[in-house]
């Protein structure tokens, strides 16, 4: 039996001038879980993501991963401590091949180049990108680029992965493909996933738990069906599109 890991965000706060972008938000996620973070535009999701990956410095609070505070370390040390991320606007290394992109993910956290090669080839195979291993990123379709970016996050052997709108820009078929992949990731890779997305279908089918932000504050959390029924959530975010 492998041990479970815990990612715990405790009362994290961040202000920009007088604007409280993230105000006293806490959440907890463990290995095997998929937690969905939703909220209307400007609700503080992006700030929250940047806080827990230490890309932004917090004002107060903490982000504990198995007892280590991620939010007080330099951003580049976060993946090594178990939390990898992707970006809403796919960020890949455009002058490197697909394989090299994944190798970077592994050597970035101190894995040897030989081992990194192996990890990269395995991931390419799993993601169905084996044929494009030596292609540059521009020769990939947009959805393949999204898969490659997720693979890069996985290449550092993280305990948790943070996916920022992984289905944005994908068509229905590709979204389904993404959903199938994400569904099996936690068990297969022994990780927890924190996912931010606007695609309600994806979020509702995929997530074990939801966390809803508005004006930088938590307005609801819990099981998808419970959160969906919460009147405040309906008012703030789902609006008339809620079924």
């Amino acid at each position: 039996m492998e041990n479970k890991s815990f990612l715990e965000v405790k009362s994290i706060c961040k202000s920009f001038g007088s604007l409280k972008a993230v105000n006293d938000v806490s959440m907890r996620i463990e290995t095997g879980e998929i937690l969905g973070l939703i909220g209307p535009n400007g609700s503080g999701k992006s700030t929250f993501i940047n806080l827990i990956t230490a890309m932004l410095k917090k004002d107060s609070g903490s982000v504990m991963l198995d007892g280590v505070d991620l939010s007080s370390m330099p951003a580049h040390k976060v993946p090594k401590n178990g939390l990898a991320r992707t970006y809403q606007t796919v960020r890949l290394f455009k002058n490197l091949t697909c394989r090299e992109n994944l190798i970077i993910g592994a050597i970035g956290v101190g894995i040897s180049q030989k081992e990194a090669n192996k990890i990269a080839d395995e991931l390419l195979e799993e993601m169905g990108l084996a044929e494009k291993a030596d292609s540059f990123v521009e020769n990939l379709t947009f959805s393949e680029q999204r898969f490659l970016e997720i693979s890069r996050a996985l290449a550092c052997k993280p305990k948790f992965v943070l996916l920022d709108e992984p289905a944005a820009g994908l068509n229905e078929e590709e979204t389904q493909h993404m959903l199938d992949l994400l569904k099996e990731l936690p068990a297969k890779k022994h990780i927890g996933i924190l996912i931010v997305d606007h695609d309600m279908h994806l979020i509702m089918t995929l997530c074990d738990k939801l966390h809803v932000l508005n004006y930088g504050q938590t307005i609801a959390e819990g099981k998808p069906e419970v959160v969906r029924a919460n009147p405040e959530v309906v008012k703030a975010y789902l609006g008339s599109t809620a079924e």
Partner: peptide
């Protein structure tokens, strides 16, 4: 082709992605 060279090329292409891949730019 070395580990250092690969990391340097990663910072050239996208320094945010390099950072979140664990690279100390």
């Amino acid at each position: 082709e070395s580990s250092l060279g690969l990391k340097l090329r990663a910072t050239r292409d996208d320094r945010y992605a390099a950072c979140s891949s664990g690279i100390d730019m």
